[in-house]
Deep mutational scan, measured.
Amino acid sequence: MSGNGNAAATAEENSPKMRVIRVGTRKSQLARIQTDSVVATLKASYPGLQFEIIAMSTTGDKILDTALSKIGEKSLFTKELEHALEKNEVDLVVHSLKDLPTVLPPGFTIGAICKRENPHDAVVFHPKFVGKTLETLPEKSVVGTSSLRRAAQLQRKFPHLEFRSIRGNLNTRLRKLDEQQEFSAIILATAGLQRMGWHNRVGQILHPEECMYAVGQGALGVEVRAKDQDILDLVGVLHDPETLLRCIAERAFLRHLEGGCSVPVAVHTAMKDGQLYLTGGVWSLDGSDSIQETMQATIHVPAQHEDGPEDDPQLVGITARNIPRGPQLAAQNLGISLANLLLSKGAKNILDVARQLNDAH
């Protein structure tokens, strides 16, 4: 009898209710805020589980004197976190989706994509230029951005401005803007500013005609071990179906173009009346040469937790077992079709030249 009692006690200790789920994140304040929001949602869904947040620095956090596009290494903000995932030191990792490459290392998958916040870019102005827009900034004003995508589009749109690289986390960039006289304004992701509670610093939100956004911008991705079915089931509740389908289309477009950090590629997606609209573009580094096109596809946005595919093969690095396969494939095909259209119009040449120029500098 006593033996059975011990077995029952052991089973209770090993039951999922007692389990601590370890969540990996970057150390920056924004990353911690984003991770806290994901953990809060998981806690609400699984009140019996405990969650421990483990923060670590990544290569991208450490190399702050070089433009991201020049470092010449993929997975700048993800490699150390993936290493911890691989060694079973954490069970899942919360990322900004735009930091996750469209091809993940073997053994990993994006197990959830959370509801997207505003994906557009924002302009934050130096205190002396508050009330201005990019259009009304004085001639030769210097605007800071760490992104080739932003610089290429904005140089084309605002030729009277000069664009220079600015690195560091959000706090560091804002301090550089406010305390030094080098920059009249800087460009940042609206979602990051909003998550930090800095709505009052948003001086201008850039519309798609001015600057399309990065693939996955404004959404959070939760990376897990691809074979860890328990954790895949656990994080599945975080999937937002519309965000998922938009981001599958965007990531398929980028992957098929073979774009990345070192080339200016941008997108804009919208879901309306059962249609998914995808606009994508590529630019030369100075913005003088560009190709942009829009395509659409009829896609039914499923309700969360309709029964999805059981075999769960990944699409552009994403596993969404609780979302039907048909809409996911339709979104992926839309991204591939748009990429093929741009490639047929000469996108590869623009991107190759951009890559060579970026590598040469």
Rank of each mutant, 00 (worst) to 15 (best):
V282A: 10
I231D: 13
S45L: 08
L206F: 12
S344E: 14
V267M: 15
S337W: 00
S96C: 07
T269Q: 01
L64G: 14
T294I: 13
F77S: 04
S147G: 00
Q194M: 15
H268E: 15
T109S: 10
R246C: 05
L357C: 01
A320H: 01
H126W: 05
Q194T: 04
Q204D: 02
E86D: 10
I231P: 01
A354R: 02
L100S: 05
L154Y: 06
L81D: 03
L276S: 03
V301M: 05
E306K: 15
C261I: 01
T133P: 05
S96T: 01
S290Q: 00
A122T: 10
A252N: 01
D178R: 04
Q292I: 15
L76D: 12
S75V: 05
H126Y: 06
A303E: 10
T58C: 12
D91Y: 05
G335E: 03
V282F: 09
K176L: 12
D65T: 10
A347Y: 15
N118K: 08
R156C: 09
E117S: 06
R116Q: 05
A226P: 07
K227H: 05
M271T: 06
H268P: 04
L220M: 13
I166F: 13
L342H: 15
P313L: 10
L238A: 01
D178S: 09
G280Y: 00
T66P: 10
I63S: 10
Q50K: 15
L100D: 02
S147C: 05
R251H: 02
I71C: 10
K157R: 10
H120A: 05
D312S: 02
L174Y: 09
I291E: 13
P324V: 10
D121G: 04
E242R: 09
A303Q: 03
D352Q: 11
D311E: 14
G218M: 00
V142T: 10
I186F: 08
R355W: 15
K132A: 11
V103E: 09
Q292V: 07
E80G: 08
L100H: 01
A320W: 14
S288V: 12
L351D: 14
G111P: 03
G60A: 04
V123G: 07
D230W: 13
A330D: 09
A252G: 05
L343K: 05
F163V: 13
Q217C: 03
E258R: 02
D233P: 05
G192W: 01
K98R: 02
P127Y: 00
T66N: 10
G221L: 04
L174S: 06
E209C: 13
I318W: 01
I318M: 07
D286Y: 04
L134T: 05
H83V: 10
L81Q: 02
K132Q: 14
D233N: 14
L85T: 06
K348W: 13
L134I: 10
L343E: 07
K348V: 00
D230P: 11
R195S: 02
G281E: 15
H256Y: 05
L206V: 07
V124E: 04
A55W: 08
F108I: 14
P106L: 12
L285Q: 07
T133F: 05
L193P: 09
G72A: 15
A360S: 13
E209R: 09
D312I: 03
N118A: 14
L206N: 03
D286T: 08
A252W: 00
V353I: 06
Q356P: 15
G218P: 01
A122L: 05
G60S: 01
R173D: 01
